[in-house]
C-alpha cells in the first residue's frame, strides 16, 4: 500500500514495505511489509503484545538490529534513506536526529559513569560542546526534564537515583542533541503508575517544546491513549489497524484491537465483568502462515480467513484495518453483542 502522505516536508519517518527477518538456520520473519509514517511533532503509538515486532521496528529505524537480521524495504528518515547510509552517517544520526529511550533505564545507563558524564558524552559526540560548557548544558537538560537540584544530580551515579529519576536522566540524554524523532521503547513499563504519568506528561511537554516526533512503542493501552495522536496496532509483524488515536481506541475496527482493549482492566464501576483475554498466543512464524495471521485466535473468523491474508483496507476517516470483515460500519464490539444475543 502506498503512503497516503507521499513526499511530505513535514514527514520525519517513513517506512515503506519494511520486512525484517532473523537468519539462524532458517529465516524467521519478524516484520512483514510494514508501512507507516510519522510527521513532525506527531506521536505515533505502536501497540501490540510481546513478540509482535514492535521493538524490532524501533531498532530497525536506527539500524541497531543484530548482524543476522535480513532487512528489506525502505526506511526514510528526514527524506534520507537510512539503509544506504555509511557507518559515519548512521552514527551521526543515532543520538543526533533520532534518539531512543529504553524500558529499563537501570540497565541502559552505564553504572560506572555519572549521569552528567553520560549526557556530556552524547553532547561531545554530536555537538562541539566540551568540558565546562558541556557540563553546564547537562545541568540545563536535567533541569529541563524536571530533576531537582540538577547541579548536584549531575555528579550522581545511576544507582543513586530513583527509577523515575533514571528515566528522566535517560530522556535528558536522548533529547540532548535536539532529535527530530524520539523512539520510546516501552518507556514506562518498568515504572510504577504514578511515575508513569509523570514521565508521559514530561514526554508530552518536551515534544511541544522541542517539536519532535515520537514513536511511542508500548503494550500499555492507557499510556498510548494518553500520548498518541495516531495509533498503529501490530500483530505478528504486521500492522493490523491504524488511525487517529481517539477514534481507534474508542471504536476499534479490527478484532485484535478490540480484544486488546477489552483485556485492559477498568476501574469503571459499571465494568466489573470478568476480563476478556484473547485466547492463544502469537504463534511462531505466523507472519508467513497462509491466511490472516490472527484468524486462529479470532472469534469472528469465517471460511476464507485461513486461505488468504486480508489487505490493510481503507475504512474511511484515515483509518485502515487488516480484516476481511472490515467495512466503514462493521465493528467487532457491536458484532460481539450480536453474537451474544
Amino acid at each position: 500500500m502506498k503512503q497516503p502522505y507521499g513526499i511530505d516536508r513535514d514527514e520525519v519517518l517513513a517506512l515503506e514495505d519494511l520486512s525484517v527477518g532473523f537468519v539462524h538456520g532458517g529465516t524467521s520473519t519478524v516484520l512483514a511489509h510494514v508501512s507507516l509514517s510519522i510527521r513532525r511533532g506527531e506521536t505515533l503509538g505502536l501497540v501490540g503484545e510481546s513478540g509482535c515486532g514492535k521493538s524490532t521496528l524501533g531498532r530497525a529505524v536506527m539500524r541497531l538490529l543484530p548482524s543476522n537480521a535480513a532487512v528489506d524495504g525502505e526506511i526514510r528518515l528526514l527524506g534520507r534513506d537510512v539503509r544506504a547510509m555509511d557507518d559515519r552517517e548512521i552514527r551521526r544520526l543515532r543520538g543526533g536526529s533520532v534518539a531512543m529511550i529504553f524500558q529499563n533505564p537501570m540497565s541502559a545507563l552505564n553504572p560506572v559513569l555519572t549521569i552528567g558524564r553520560q549526557i556530556t558524552e552524547a553532547l561531545e559526540t554530536h555537538t562541539g560542546l566540551r568540558g565546562r560548557a558541556a557540563t553546564a548544558r547537562a545541568v540545563e537538560l536535567l533541569h529541563l526534564v524536571g530533576i531537582g537540584r540538577p547541579v548536584d544530580r549531575v555528579h550522581d551515579y545511576p544507582h543513586q537515583l530513583s527509577g523515575g529519576m533514571r528515566q528522566r536522566a535517560m530522556i535528558a540524554m536522548a533529547v540532548s542533541c535536539d532529535p527530530k524523532l524520539l523512539i520510546a521503547d516501552e518507556p514506562t513499563t518498568a515504572l510504577d503508575v504514578t511515575v508513569q504519568t509523570q514521565i508521559l506528561d514530561l514526554l508530552a511537554a518536551l515534544q511541544e517544546k522541542l517539536s519532535m516526533a515520537i514513536l511511542f512503542i508500548s503494550h500499555d493501552m492507557a499510556a498510548v491513549a494518553s500520548v498518541a495522536d495516531r495509533v498503529a496496532v501490530m500483530y505478528a509483524g504486521r500492522i493490523v489497524e491504524q488511525g487517529q488515536a481517539t477514534a481507534l481506541l474508542l471504536d476499534p475496527a479490527h478484532p485484535y484491537t478490540s480484544g486488546l482493549l477489552n483485556s485492559v482492566p477498568s476501574v469503571d464501576g459499571a465494568k466489573l465483568a470478568r476480563l476478556q483475554a484473547i485466547p492463544g498466543n502469537v504463534s511462531a512464524g505466523s507472519a508467513e502462515a497462509a491466511g490472516c495471521s490472527f484468524h486462529p485466535r479470532c472469534r469472528f473468523a469465517v471460511t476464507g480467513c485461513d486461505a488468504e491474508a486480508p489487505p490493510l483496507a481503507d475504512i474511511g476517516d484515515g483509518r485502515a484495518s487488516r480484516c476481511w470483515l472490515a467495512t466503514e460500519d462493521w465493528r467487532p464490539d457491536a458484532a460481539a453483542r450480536g453474537l451474544a444475543t
Binding site: 541502559a108 552505564n110 559526540t125
Partner: peptide, 28 residues
C-alpha cells in the same frame, strides 16, 4: 548483549568509544 551497549550505540558512539568508555570501565 545488554541494553547498556545498545543504548550507547543508539547515542551514536563508535565501536572504539563503546569499548573504551562503556565496556572497559564495566570490566575494570
Amino acid at each position: 548483549e545488554t541494553d547498556l551497549v545498545m543504548a550507547a550505540r543508539a547515542t551514536g558512539c563508535s565501536n572504539a568509544r563503546i569499548l573504551l568508555y562503556h565496556v572497559l570501565p564495566n570490566i575494570a
